[in-house]
Design a protein around this nucleic acid. Structure first.
Length: 653
RNA sequence: GCGCCCGUAGCUCAACGGAUAGAGCAUUCGCCUUCUAAGCGAAUGGUUGCAGGUUCGAUUCCUGCCGGGCGUACCA
């Protein structure tokens, strides 16, 4: 309703009454709300601030304001009434329809999602936000809990873009740390022949590839878990893990061509690590493809991606996020070393308990750990380095870290530490925290964290496939014609099934823990992704019916025909979409859009049933034309909104 | 101990300081010859954890309790 709020706020701010009270247009605009019931008007303005400034009772102030406004000749306003301390505005039906549908069609021309930009704004123009999203650890399969950062982050990226920002998605892979030393130690112990072969100088990539034929991230995870478990009571194994990691770390700075044992050792560890990464990413890609998100290894290596980036950087960042593993800041870019030097030079790093640390919040609070007592970097160091890198390479104005809430302290320290180094931009960095994915314990009935430790991890890939298969069954039952085409069925079932899982995750406020209920996720009735996609399909099929019956019709419809009360509600709902897009961005909260779309879908579904007998497309051609204009606008808004959540659209299901 | 988050209908969640606190699920009752019933309508269901405070107005802000979750330098 922004377009009307703005116009009215201008008018009101110009009144002597408002001037006396010191009310400005922006303040008035923000004060508007929707009346609780449709028959109470379309917009409502509480008169409390006015009453206070003019020192009169609120209802009296409301009456005075209404009186002044009634003399203003507002073309789009049919009536202004007071209800106690509120001034309620009734907008003219045809003005509502003409302005709102016109606005939608102006900003969302055509029939392709790519052209739909109604709801967008320019508030972020010229600024770059870098979003840290997904960021799984390698050498472990993706579990259901990885859905959250990936899809909240993906949605936020799109929402920022809709708010005018250039948005760069970064997948900050956990691909570094002493854990990889243990994994390598465990791997070499269990598969000495592979270790031997990989370490030899002349072993070709194809031979290494063959050695790891059929390996999965879960295999790696098992090897790590077993070794890690054993090393708990065996200091020798603990040391072995540290030693292997040290060789890996040294390999980054070495030329690996020599034949001496030290070099061979480094080479072996480095190659093993590369393959650990390759096995993991290959597996991640399958899931990311299902989810509809893409990441490109950064810096770019593949020629076609490089070309695309050079041709149109903005388009590239819209389509691809970037993989920048933690290792990159140790190896590829010398950011960690530089950071440590700078911290020492600035005098904020100090020696404590054999480590280098920065106390960001007094000596009694945990500090940032810059260098461990064994000289290795910690994740603090790598995140600080990563932040600087993002600033330097992507001109980051704002950093958004989509990471679960348990890392709250870490990010607080991170931002503070960067500020202490003189980086003002760190003030614009936020930790967009989210709740955990909880599973129900069958025995105790209590909700608890999905754990990798107990080995009871629910794989994201399995969940998505299950959802897809469930959708296939439902389609076979409800839409047999569609089910006959196996290719189409798979495509649609994928979109609907994945959409169900994704929306289940995005529909509630991100801070809440998600209580994952298998039955509920696979139940597609009520407030679900499939419900909204279903409404989207209905909107499309009623448009199709109109074209079949009346053909292509041009000219402005007779909007005065839209007298159905729900048509008015739908129009107002459409008009408030831009506010949802703005608020979702301001609060880093995709569920704002999710909630909005559920309300929009429910309202339309109700309208659909209410008009079932006469038909949205019926015998009255002019009425049908006006209604189909409304339907067209609704479809564009719903489609655009779903895309902002990261759902993919379907035209039948 | 200190710090962060949370507590709303039987369950899962909404409500950007505003009017009679709303949805979905579950339960009960209705509605498909038609543009897809993955839908719609209705009924039932509340001392918003407790006690104070600020305010014309508090689920929302502040303080204190109670209850739950998480974090608290060498795993990230």
């Amino acid at each position: 309703m922004l377009i009307f709020k703005q116009q009215l706020a201008q008018v009101i701010a110009g009144l002597p009454l408002a001037k006396d009270a010191g009310l400005t247009a922006p303040a008035i605009e923000a004060a508007f709300s929707a009346p609780p019931k449709p028959d109470m008007g379309d917009l409502s303005l509480p008169a409390f601030p006015l009453a206070k400034a003019l020192k009169m009772a609120p209802p009296q102030a409301a009456a005075k304001l209404a009186e002044a406004l009634q003399q203003q000749q507002l073309s789009y306003c049919s009536e202004i009434r007071t209800a106690g301390p509120y001034v309620n505005f009734y907008l003219k039906a045809d003005a509502l329809a003409r302005d709102i549908i016109g606005d939608v069609n102006g900003r969302s021309p055509g029939d392709a999602l790519e052209q739909w930009h109604y709801g967008d704004n320019e508030s972020g123009n010229g600024k770059t936000v870098v979003l840290d999203i997904s960021s799984p650890n390698i050498a472990k399969p993706l579990g259901v809990h990885h859905l959250r950062s990936t899809m909240i982050g993906n949605s936020l990226k799109r929402i920022y873009e809709a708010n005018g920002w250039r948005a760069v998605g970064v997948n900050h892979l956990g691909d570094w740390g002493t854990g990889f030393g243990k994994l390598i130690a465990g791997l070499c112990e269990a598969f000495p022949d592979i270790a031997l072969k990989v370490g030899r100088k002349h072993t070709t990539p194809a031979e290494i590839e063959a050695s790891f034929q059929g390996w999965s991230a879960e295999d790696l995870n098992q090897i790590y878990a077993r070794f890690s478990q054993r090393s708990k009571d065996d200091p020798a194994l603990e040391d072995a893990g540290k030693r292997e990691f040290a060789y890996l770390e040294r390999a980054l700075d070495a030329t690996l061509d020599d034949d001496d044992p030290e070099t061979a050792h480094m080479r072996r560890n480095f190659r093993l690590w590369e393959y650990i990464k390759r096995i993991s990413l290959r597996e991640f890609e399958v899931v990311y493809r299902l989810l509809g998100v893409k990441f490109a290894p950064w810096p770019l290596v593949y020629p076609e991606l490089k070309q695309m980036y050079e041709r149109d950087g903005a388009a590239f960042f819209r389509e691809y996020g970037l993989y920048t593993g933690e290792s990159y800041f140790v190896a590829g870019a010398p950011y960690c070393k530089q950071l440590i030097e700078d911290a020492k030079k600035a005098g904020i790093a100090e020696h404590s308990e054999d480590a280098y640390v920065i106390f960001v919040d007094g000596k009694d609070k945990p500090p940032i750990l810059l260098l461990k007592d064994d000289g290795a970097t910690s994740y603090h160091t790598r995140d600080m380095a990563g932040g600087r890198y993002r600033r330097d390479h992507f001109q980051m104005d704002k950093g958004v870290y989509v990471v679960d809430f348990r890392q709250g302290l870490h990010f607080k320290q991170l931002f503070k530490g960067l500020e202490m180094l003189g980086h003002e931009w760190a003030k614009e960095c936020v930790h967009v925290e989210f709740g955990l994915m909880l599973g129900k314990d069958e025995e105790t009935g209590k909700w608890g964290i999905f754990s990798t430790r107990k080995g009871k991890i629910l794989l994201l890939h399995d969940l998505l496939n299950d959802a897809i298969e469930t959708v296939k069954k439902i389609v076979a039952e409800k839409n047999p014609d569609l089910a006959k085409d196996a290719g189409r069925l798979t495509e649609i079932a994928t979109r609907v099934g994945v959409g169900a899982v994704v929306f289940n995750d995005l529909k509630q406020g991100r801070r809440n823990d998600v209580k994952f209920d298998w039955d509920e996720v696979l139940d597609f009735s009520g407030e679900t992704g499939p419900y909204m996609l279903y409404q989207y399909v209905r909107l499309g099929s009623v448009q199709r019916k109109f074209r079949e019956r009346y053909g292509e019709v041009s000219g402005t419809p007779d909007y005065a025909k839209l007298t159905h009360p729900q048509e008015r509600e739908l129009l107002k709902m459409i008009a408030s979409f831009p506010e949802a897009v703005e608020r979702a961005c301001r609060e880093n909260e995709p569920s704002v859009i999710g909630r909005y779309l559920l309300d929009l879908s429910a309202l339309f579904s109700s309208y659909w049933t209410a008009t079932k007998d006469e038909g949205i497309v019926g015998d009255d051609r002019n009425l049908s034309q006006a209604r189909i204009a409304l339907v067209g606008a609704l479809r564009k808004v719903l489609g655009r909104g779903l895309a902002l959540l990261g759902l993919r659209l379907v035209d039948e299901m």
